[in-house]
Simulated assay, not measured.
Amino acid sequence: MTTIAEALRRFPLPRLEARMLLMFACPGLSHVRIVGHPEEELDAGALARFDALAARRVNGEPLAYLIGEREFYGRDFRVGPAVLIPRPETEHLVEAALSRQGGESARVVDLGCGSGAIAITLALEAPLWQVSAVDLSAEALKLARANAERLGAAVTFCEGSWYRALPPAERYDLIVSNPPYIAVQDRHLEQGDVRFEPRMALTDGDDGLSCLREIAAGAVERLLPGGWLMLEHGFDQGSAVRTLLLHQGLQAVETLPDLAGLDRVTLGRAAK
Rank of each mutant, 00 (worst) to 15 (best):
G238H: 00
T156A: 15
A119D: 04
G80P: 05
Q248L: 13
M1W: 13
G116Q: 00
A117S: 07
E6G: 04
R107F: 09
V194Q: 02
G103V: 12
L250H: 09
E232A: 00
A252H: 15
E221K: 15
G80H: 10
E125C: 12
E40D: 09
G234Q: 05
R75D: 03
S30P: 12
S177R: 06
A96G: 10
E69Y: 14
R145E: 13
R107W: 11
L267F: 10
Y65F: 13
G102C: 12
F77D: 03
A119S: 08
V79K: 05
E149Q: 13
P86S: 02
G68I: 02
G226P: 14
D135Q: 00
G80F: 06
R145F: 10
V108H: 01
T243M: 11
L166A: 00
L98P: 12
G80I: 02
L229F: 13
L141Y: 07
R199H: 10
E197F: 01
S99L: 15
L224C: 14
A240I: 02
D258V: 03
A140V: 04
T266P: 07
L22Q: 10
E69I: 10
E95D: 13
D135C: 07
L13H: 04
I85S: 07
P62S: 09
G160K: 09
V194H: 05
G205I: 01
R100E: 14
E69F: 14
V83M: 05
S210V: 01
E125I: 11
D258C: 09
L98C: 14
W162M: 06
A219I: 09
S105I: 12
L151S: 09
R187L: 03
T266R: 09
G114H: 03
R78P: 03
G36F: 03
V155E: 06
S99F: 14
A219V: 10
L66Y: 10
F157A: 02
A18T: 01
L209P: 02
E214D: 10
P86T: 01
P38M: 03
S30H: 13
F24D: 12
L246E: 14
H37S: 12
A140F: 05
F157L: 05
P168I: 08
E41H: 12
Q251V: 14
V155K: 09
G74C: 08
A169C: 10
R213E: 06
H188N: 01
G218R: 13
I215A: 08
D206F: 08
G80V: 05
L98Y: 14
G160N: 05
I215N: 07
I4T: 03
G45L: 15
A146K: 11
D173P: 04
E221H: 15
E40P: 04
L21A: 02
P88G: 04
E39H: 09
I4W: 06
L229A: 09
A165C: 07
R150P: 04
